[in-house]
Write a protein that binds this DNA or RNA. Structure first.
Lengths: 224, 224
DNA sequence: GCAACCAAAATTTTCGAAAATAATGAAATT
DNA sequence: AATTTCATTATTTTCGAAAATTTTGGTTGC
C-alpha cells in the first residue's frame, strides 16, 4: 500500500471517529508529524476526502474538517432513505442464493459481536457496516452502492457520538436487523424497505436528541 | 485559481469531451508537457477525478481514463432518474419565486443558444447543464445536487459523441425542455417528473443506438 | 483609541530530484 | 521454441526546498 493510501485511511478514520474537531484546520506540518510522512501523500489524501465532503478546502488556505450540523445530518438521512430503499428493493429482486447467504452470514457475525461483553468497538462498526452493505450488494448498481458508501460515512460521524453517549438502550437493535434481514430473505421488498426506514428513523431520533443539547455558543453581535 | 484547480478543470473537460481514449494511461510526464505544470498539481487533479470515477487508479501503476460501457451508462441513467425525479419533486414543492425565475431565465438562455446557426458547442453544453441544474436547484438537498452533478458528468461522456454523431434530429429538444419547465412552474410534480423521465429516456435511446455499432472486438478464448 | 499599513512569520502550493516500483527487452537456460 | 533471469529503462511515488500567499503583530499616522 502506498503512503497516500495509508494517509487516506488514517485521516478518514480519525475524522469519522471525531478525533479532529469539526472546522479545525488540518495543517500539513501537524499531519506530517502525526502520521510520519511528507506533504505529498497527505495532500492526496486530503483531496480525496474533500470530494467525500469529510473535509473542505479553500484555495491557499488549506483544509479543514467539514463542519457538522443538524441540517446536514437530516439531508444525509433523507438521501440515505431514498438511495437505500431503492437499492434494497433492487437487491431483493435480483439477489441470488449467494446474496441471501451473505446477508445471513453478515447478520450472524454482527450478532456475535454485539453479544460480546467487552466489545471491540472497531469490529462492531465494521460488521454493522458490512451487514447494511450486504443487504444492498445485489442491487446491480455501482452508483447506488457508491452513494450508499458516501452517505454511510457522512452519517457515521453523527452516529458514533450519539451511540456512545447513549443512556440505557431502549432498542433491541439486533432484533431490528434480524427483522430487516428476514423480510429481505422472504423477498418482501415493501416490508424490508419499511423496516429499514423505521430502523434509520429510530437512529435519527437518537442522534437528534444527542445533538440538540450541545448547541455551541455563538455570541450575538450585541454580546460582544 | 491554483494550478491544481486548473489541472482539474482542464483534465475533466478533456476526459468528458473524449479527447483521451477511454482506458488509455494518463502519464504524468505527458500531462506535465500538455498542461505545462509539474507533477504535484496533476496528481491532485487525478485524485479528485478518481473519486468522480472519471479516471481509475492502480497502486504504483498510475492513472487511466475509466472505460465506458453500455452497462455503465444504463446504471448511470437509472440512477439519474431516481435522483432527479426526487430532486425535481422537492424543488417544485419548495421553490420560491426566485427559483421559478431562474428556471425561466435558464430556459430562455438555452433556447437562444440552440437557435444560433453557428453554434458555440461549449456555450450550448453549459446552458443545457445550467437549465437542468436550475430545475433541481431548490430541492434543498446538497447531497442530491452533488449526486446530480456526478451523474451528469458521467453521462455527458456518452451524450456528446451520440449527439454530434447524430443524424437528422427527429426531436424538438427545445420543446421538450419548455414542457418540463412549464410543468415545473405550474407546480405539477407528477407531470414534470414524467416529462423529465421521457426526455432522458429518449436521449438514452439515441445513445444506445450510437454505442451498439462500435462494440469492441473481444477475442474469445477459442479464437486465441 | 483606532484604522491603515508594513514587515515577519506561518502556511500552502509548486517544483525538481531522489527513491521505489513496474515494464521492457535481451541473454541464458531448458 | 518457450521460459526464466537479469539488467535497463520508464514510470510512479515521495521528499525537501523554493515560491507564492495568507496570517500575525507591531508601528505609524490621524
Amino acid at each position: 500500500m502506498t503512503l497516500a493510501e495509508k494517509a487516506y485511511q488514517s485521516l478518514r478514520k480519525d475524522i469519522v471517529e471525531g478525533r479532529f474537531q469539526p472546522e479545525s484546520p488540518l495543517r500539513l506540518a501537524e499531519l506530517s508529524d502525526r502520521y510520519g510522512m511528507g506533504f505529498s501523500p497527505l495532500r492526496e489524501a486530503l483531496n480525496r476526502l474533500q470530494s467525500e465532503r469529510l473535509v473542505t478546502a479553500e484555495s491557499l488556505r488549506g483544509f479543514r474538517v467539514s463542519r457538522q450540523s443538524l441540517a446536514e445530518f437530516e439531508d444525509a438521512l433523507q438521501s440515505r432513505l431514498l438511495i437505500e430503499t431503492e437499492a434494497l428493493t433492487l437487491s431483493i429482486a435480483r439477489g441470488d442464493d449467494n446474496w441471501a447467504a451473505s446477508v445471513v452470514a453478515a447478520l450472524y457475525a454482527l450478532k456475535l459481536q454485539t453479544g460480546r461483553a467487552a466489545g471491540d468497538v472497531d469490529a462492531l462498526k465494521m460488521r454493522h457496516h458490512a451487514f447494511h452493505r450486504a443487504l444492498l450488494s445485489a442491487c446491480g448498481s455501482d452508483w447506488l452502492l457508491e452513494f450508499f458508501e458516501r452517505l454511510y460515512a457522512a452519517t457515521e460521524r453523527y452516529r458514533i457520538p450519539a451511540l456512545t453517549a447513549a443512556g440505557p438502550q431502549k432498542r433491541d437493535i439486533d432484533e431490528e436487523h434480524a427483522e430487516i434481514a428476514n423480510a429481505a430473505l422472504a423477498r418482501d421488498p415493501g416490508m424490508a424497505a419499511a423496516l429499514l426506514r423505521a430502523h434509520y428513523l429510530r437512529t435519527a431520533t437518537a442522534i437528534r436528541a444527542s445533538m440538540a443539547p450541545v448547541r455551541p455558543f455563538v455570541p450575538s453581535i450585541d454580546s460582544v
